[in-house]
Nucleic acid binder design. Structure first.
Length: 611
DNA sequence: CTAGGGTTAG
């Protein structure tokens, strides 16, 4: 049916005479024209027959000896009545088995078109997945051109849709986005089914603006989003901290005939919990109320989000209240619930209560996991309970849980902070014996430990061993620079910035310069500090932040240069920078003069001229 | 499609 199009005479230069050797290859298969070219349909049919019977070796021989333009043959096959699925099989075989075969994009999409006409969608999906996995492929515009060669808008839309999906699934975001855009230019209608994975992939890369773009485009192109799509967009806004926009999307949902489900509400609640700032839990609570009013029941995740949220907000009572509430509602806590509670307790130093909570979870039949142990180990480490930390570490291993580099790093850091750097190195060797690779954090802990012990030479030696592995990161530099500065060797620290950081391709940040400024200030070299400031502003175009000002203020006030300090303070206020508690501690008198007063919690208020 | 631990420097 599909044939007609092509004149067989076209094949003349494609299949030279020896094509007739086909006869000898498959004598059994029915009449193959021995006559010279043009070859009849029967020739194509014979090949189709070979494909159908999967006589690959015969086909191989044919290809080696007789067929020098597979594109043309393939075109004939597709245009024949041959089942598109067989065409596909032949295609894959051809690519895999015949050297240097590359079929044109046009043919490739010709094949996909016929697969689409036959509704073999899953075949197309997996084909495109493989197509996209190969790095060296065609520019998107050529692909769309190939798609557009068929004028069935519906089929083309399906192909474009699946292409976007394939790119998104393979995390080729640039290509996915471009395909998404081009589909718009061509007027192909995509589906929410492929837009969602695209947005999820973008969100995972924190490309919030792109998620928003895709969402807006979906609306503009009238691609009906579903609850899942909406939820991804809500999540994207939440992760970016744009809560108002997230709420707008909740409203959009209603306009488009869907209503927010438990995930939508959970996402929004979590957004508020992670927002930071005062009153965020109040807002999270408001969403909870709204959710209940809309007859959406909170689930385990809702409670877990709130428990963790209250903890991070410093509200032990709020957290426990939610915990009790969930028990009352007969929602069974899971490992996540207990981990949040344990971690919360550990973070405020209530380590023994955390241990009790662990026992409670065990008796509730919930198995502690690596996260549980890491929280507890970290809690012990940070509270100077090395023995307990090591005991916990042993029981973790005893239960067959595999520690990670981070587990080791917490312990190593604790050793280093307590001056037992040697023990830290011992643990590092242990982790390596167990096949866990010491990472940059491991080394940073050790280097920091050596510096604190005054062994800067050892630190530098270890540092030098890293550069071969491309390991030192900005933090490593900061630690080592700090080490030099505390030995009043700020110049050496400055050398590290000058000769190391940029050569490693690292970008110095405020902290990098602040460390140097602080170093010079401590040495009483205010001029040096001022020069660092100039360097920072010039080379990196970093503007002084509150921390930078604090460093300089400290320097000036220690030297008794209160006039200069006052000048600096005015300068920072003029820039609209808000002094913090540290600022207040350094230049208290000057701050009081300017009307600043701390409240009970230490937050600063300006009681004089507040505009 | 939503929830938990994580680390060195601040």
């Amino acid at each position: 049916m599909l044939i007609k199009s092509r004149k067989f005479s076209d094949l003349k230069d494609v299949f030279p005479r020896k094509f007739s050797s086909l006869t000898t290859l498959c004598p059994s298969s029915s009449p193959i024209t021995k006559s010279p070219f043009p070859p009849s349909r029967d020739d194509v049919a014979a090949i189709a027959d070979l494909i159908e019977k999967q006589h690959w070796s015969k086909l191989k021989l044919l290809h080696v000896k007789d067929i020098n333009n597979p594109n043309e043959l393939f075109h004939q096959l597709i245009s024949s009545n041959l089942d598109p699925e067989l065409c596909l099989r032949y295609y894959t075989w051809l690519i895999a088995n015949i050297r240097n075969t590359s079929l044109s994009l046009e043919l490739t999409f010709n094949l996909l078109h016929s697969l689409a006409n036959a509704k073999k969608y899953s075949k197309i999906r997996s084909f495109l997945d493989g197509f996209v996995k190969k790095r060296s492929d065609h520019p998107i515009h050529s692909i769309f051109h190939a798609i557009s060669l068929c004028d069935n808008l519906c089929v083309n839309s399906i192909l474009a849709d699946m292409l976007v999906l394939a790119y998104a699934n393979n995390l080729r975001l640039e290509s996915a986005l471009e395909a998404f855009k081009r589909a718009g230019y061509y007027g192909y209608k995509l589906s929410a089914l492929s837009c969602k994975p695209l947005m999820v992939a973008l969100l995972n890369e924190k490309r919030f603006a792109d998620v928003e773009f895709v969402y807006k485009e979906m609306i503009r192109r009238r691609i009906q989003p579903n609850v899942f799509t909406f939820n991804v967009v809500i999540n994207s806004f939440c992760k970016k901290g744009k809560m108002e926009k997230a709420k707008d999307v909740m409203e959009d949902m209603k306009v488009y005939g869907t209503s927010p489900n438990v995930v939508s509400y959970n996402t929004l609640i979590d957004g508020y919990c992670k927002l930071g700032g005062v009153g965020k839990m109040y807002k999270a609570d408001a969403v909870l109320k709204e959710m209940v009013e809309s007859k959406v029941s909170p689930n385990l995740t809702t409670f877990n989000i709130l428990i963790d949220g209250f903890w991070k907000d410093g509200s032990y009572s709020g957290s426990m209240k939610v915990f009790r509430e969930m028990l009352e509602q007969d929602v069974k806590p899971n490992v996540v619930t207990y981990n949040s509670l344990i971690n919360g307790l550990c973070s405020v130093g209530k380590v023994s209560e955390a241990t009790c909570m662990r026992d409670e979870m065990v008796s509730a039949g919930v198995e502690p996991n690596l996260i549980t142990y890491n929280s507890l180990i970290n809690g012990f480490c940070k509270n100077g309970m090395m023995k307990e930390a090591l005991d916990m570490f042993a029981s973790l291993k005893g239960r067959g849980i595999v520690p990670t580099a981070k587990t080791y790093n917490m312990l190593i850091d604790a050793y280093c902070k307590s001056g037992k750097v040697e023990d830290g190195f011992g643990l590092k060797e242990e982790m390596e014996r167990e096949g866990i690779v010491a990472n940059v954090e491991t080394y940073n802990c050790l280097i920091g430990g050596l510096c604190r012990n005054g062994n800067i030479e050892g630190a530098k030696k270890l540092f030098d061993q890293l550069s071969g592995k491309g390991l030192p990161d900005l933090v490593t530099y900061h630690i080592l620079m700090d080490g030099y500065c505390s030995r009043e060797e700020t110049r050496k620290a400055a050398m590290l910035l000058k000769e190391g950081i940029s050569k490693m391709g690292l970008k110095p940040r405020h902290l990098t310069y602040n460390i140097l400024m602080e170093g010079y200030c401590k040495e009483g070299n205010l001029k040096g500090a001022a020069n660092v400031r100039i360097q920072m502003e010039k080379e990196r175009r970093l503007r002084m932040n509150v921390a930078s000002y604090n460093v300089l203020l400290q320097g000036y006030s220690q030297k008794g240069k209160m006039e200069d300090a006052n000048r600096l303070l005015n300068e920072m206020l003029e820039k609209g920078l808000i002094p913090n508690r540290i600022t207040y501690e350094i230049v208290k008198a000057e701050m009081v003069d300017k009307g600043f007063v701390p409240d009970i919690e230490g937050h600063l208020f300006n009681v004089s001229t507040k505009s």
